[in-house]
Design a protein around this nucleic acid. Structure first.
Lengths: 153, 153
DNA sequence: CGAAATAATGATATGCTGTATCATTCTTGG
DNA sequence: CCAAGAATGATACAGCATATCATTATTTCG
């Protein structure tokens, strides 16, 4: 069974456990994100579903599906790119906190990481010192991946 | 002389020093950003120039002007909001590094800060450990400002 | 000075992202 | 089976952004 199929099965179970349904179209959109190591836009997912499944979803439906998938913690939105990416912990059974995202500015590959607690604490202290309160430590970090760096060298 | 006027005069000098010209329309757009403690979109700046100066700038021109102002380090773009904000160091003579931005998710006020070196180092270590290289430490941090927090309490 | 080059701005069209709204279809529980 | 709710479709539109070509200002230099 493919990596994608495994993730979808797992997602289906966890939806069911929460009393939600992972319909066919939701699976198709989710698979579009699972296929890719880059973030994809709603409209790219429209194209993906068309090409891959012959399913012509209206954009509005894809946005609704993406909202659903985010509510189910299966998908994250990258605000700086206006794109979406499958959660890296989609196969985990335990809940996990807010992640950070490394985005390669050359090949666009995205990696979801968890920055260590002490760094987050440091961040929080800086935020507090400025008279603010950290609402969410979801950071979208502009970076270059190793492959691209080596390719450049 | 108003705070805004001082900043514009300073900006004009520093442009001149770099061989660039801060034209009238560029001053108008910049003043729209200096007026505000929130980030503004290009189209909001179109409206601002119309209301404030009777100047009907086409959006394309505002985008070009914003590009210019960014090149001159007078303005920052917040990618997560698709909006622009005047640089907090616009009156400083010395160069400064990449900033971070605290964005209140209630009143939208923005504060530009510089996170301490050790936190940046911690961030960088985490990025390296994940097989990436930090390209820019410009972070856009989802937060709540003190006023909004107190208002809520 | 005056023409040529360069910089700045205008006009128009278009593409992408996202939401509002109302209609329709599908599923499910009583 | 039917009523209620969930999911999806259709259409329109708003906001952000860029491509492209035209025009106007400004500068440079013989």
């Amino acid at each position: 069974m493919s990596r994608v199929q495994i993730a979808i099965n797992h997602a289906e179970s966890s939806c069911k456990a929460r009393g939600a349904k992972l319909t066919n179209k939701r699976k198709q959109v989710l698979s579009g994100l699972l296929q890719s190591n880059k973030a994809r836009s709603a409209y790219q997912l429209v194209d993906y579903c068309k090409d891959e499944f012959g399913e012509t979803l209206p954009p509005m439906s894809v946005y609704r599906i993406l909202d659903f998938l985010q509510d189910e913690h299966l998908v994250h939105k990258l605000k700086s790119a206006n794109k979406y990416i499958a959660c890296a912990h989609i196969n985990c059974d335990h809940a996990h906190g807010v992640s950070q995202f490394l985005i390669c500015n050359q090949c666009e590959v995205v990696k979801e990481i968890t920055i260590n607690k002490s760094t987050i604490n440091g961040l929080q202290r800086n935020v507090e010192d400025a008279g603010f309160h950290l609402a969410s430590p979801q950071l979208e970090i502009n970076a270059v991946c190793d492959s691209c760096k080596n390719r450049a060298a």
